[in-house]
């Protein structure tokens, strides 16, 4: 029965993906996280603003940044190794879709500005080394998403589970 029926029990966080395309376009330009208000100018505030605490970043902010970083790493590697592009770009798009969902969930905007999502470290010119470096990043990403899912409130658990699973499948796809 299960094999022919849609998964009725999984309708927990059906997300509207309609905004993904435009977000993706924005992300592609190189992205900067603008935490709503956290980095807004605090200068020139009046007396009443003095005691206001800046809003605490959402606990998922690092995971969102990691999604953008992983996407940036894959896109950069695809530029250096065009023969790998068909393998790498779908993975980058997945990370960007995660970033868009995480941004929506945490109420932050992803603004295009400086290339903040560029990967850390130089890109290996060797194809094998490049894939190994990408696998290492995905493995670390999988672990952080697993931790985030374990600690998450109910309404975030399903999305974070999918992010963890996706990162694990990327690791497999990069073999």
């Amino acid at each position: 029965m299960v094999l022919t029926c849609p998964v009725a029990m999984g309708i927990t966080t059906r997300q509207d993906g309609s905004s993904e395309l435009s977000r993706r376009a924005v992300l592609r330009a190189g992205a900067l996280l603008a935490l709503g208000g956290a980095t807004a100018p605090l200068t020139g505030c009046g007396l009443l603003d003095r005691d206001e605490q800046p809003p605490r970043p959402d606990p998922l902010a690092p995971l969102l940044e990691e999604s953008l970083r992983l996407a940036g790493g894959l896109r950069a590697a695809a530029t250096v190794h065009p023969d790998l592009a068909t393998r790498l770009l779908p993975l980058a798009e997945s990370h960007e879709a995660h970033a868009a969902e995480l941004a929506r969930l945490t109420g932050v905007t992803i603004a295009s500005a400086t290339p903040a999502a560029s990967p850390s470290g130089p890109l290996p010119a060797d194809r094998t080394a490049a894939l190994a470096a990408l696998r290492k990043s995905e493995r670390a990403g999988r672990e952080s998403a697993i931790r985030a899912c374990a600690d998450a409130p109910a309404e975030r658990a399903a999305l974070l589970g999918s992010v963890a699973a996706a990162r694990a499948t990327h690791l497999e796809a990069l073999r």
Binding site: P90, L91, S162, A166, T169, A173
Partner: peptide, 26 residues
């Protein structure tokens, strides 16, 4: 996580691309 990875392996065996989906299980 395990079943999503197995699905990716089966896609590879079947020659299905892309090997992955953005939101496994959704």
């Amino acid at each position: 996580v395990e079943y999503a990875v197995r699905a990716t392996r089966w896609r590879r065996s079947a020659g299905i691309t892309p090997l992955t989906v953005p939101f496994p299980g959704r």
